[in-house]
Amino acid sequence: MIEIDRLTKRYGATLVVEDVSFNVEEGTLTVVVGTSGAGKSTLLRMINRLVEPSAGRVLIDGEDTRTIPEDELRHRIGYVIQGYGLFPHRNVADNIATVPRLLRWDRKRIAQRVEELLDLFQLDPAEFAHKFPHELSGGQQQRVGVARALAARPALLLMDEPFGALDAVIRSKAQDDLIAIQRRLGATIVLVTHDMNEAFHLGDRIAVMDQARLLQYATPAELLMRPADDFVERLVGTVERPFRLLSLTPVREALEAGHAEGEPIAASESLHDALSRLLWTGRKALPVADSSGAIIGRVSVDKILQHGRPLP
């Protein structure tokens, strides 16, 4: 568990991060979201001590980060930034091997790990290991950046606007890939973004920051139903709210008995997707299938609409 305890950062008289506390559970993805200049990057950089806190502390599994030598701490924490900062003079394999080399792993172990990560990120080792960063597309560079950060199996992965340099189509694919990899590795991730859609798409929990302060730290659904104040409510987007709620709710929550015509939708898909299909096809209901493909009931427009507003 990562405990962020009353972290504060001051530059001269200006408070950039003010008394922020929250805990990140092992194996979860926490998104820090807020407008530009809110202090998100500074907060993130205090976790791996690229910025020294003015006050407060960070505990990783109960261990105060100040008791760990800086470089050693950073070997244990993955770090991905917007633009990735890949080393232009080193090929993909050498980039990924950066931290294992700093840790003096033996060559064979490094080579194995690099290959494993390239496979995980769907980059054919034979094709990509010896390419240089400028020979890669934006999406490929992004994947190498994340692979490099994960190379030494860090306890925690910090990501600062990791999708900021990607165009919309590649970005949503990269987000899905990140979720898949996070689930598969059980990684603990703190990700910074200014994009509320991204926050809702990725976050198990969301920390909303504004003007150096943490306004609310909650699950996406709580954020929608019970925003802490007007600012959070506006940030969450009043117009978008029902649709966000539907995106967060799986079809199985609105499952009802009965028959419907048309192509079935998976129970794990979101109500947002189900509604979208219903609107487009002009039907009133869709059959619902479980993971094996068997029809287990149906989902209807009326039932979906009930989920698009806060429970009484």
Binding site: L50, D71, R74, G83, G85, L86, F87, P88, L102, G145
Partner: peptide, 25 residues
């Protein structure tokens, strides 16, 4: 590039490792 130096620092390269391994090359 500033991002390259920031990434190097963030991965725990010491000042010397950064200078000799990244900045000078």
């Amino acid at each position: 590039p500033a991002a390259v130096v920031d990434a190097a620092r963030g991965m725990g390269m010491s000042a010397r490792q950064r200078l000799l391994g990244v900045e000078m090359p």
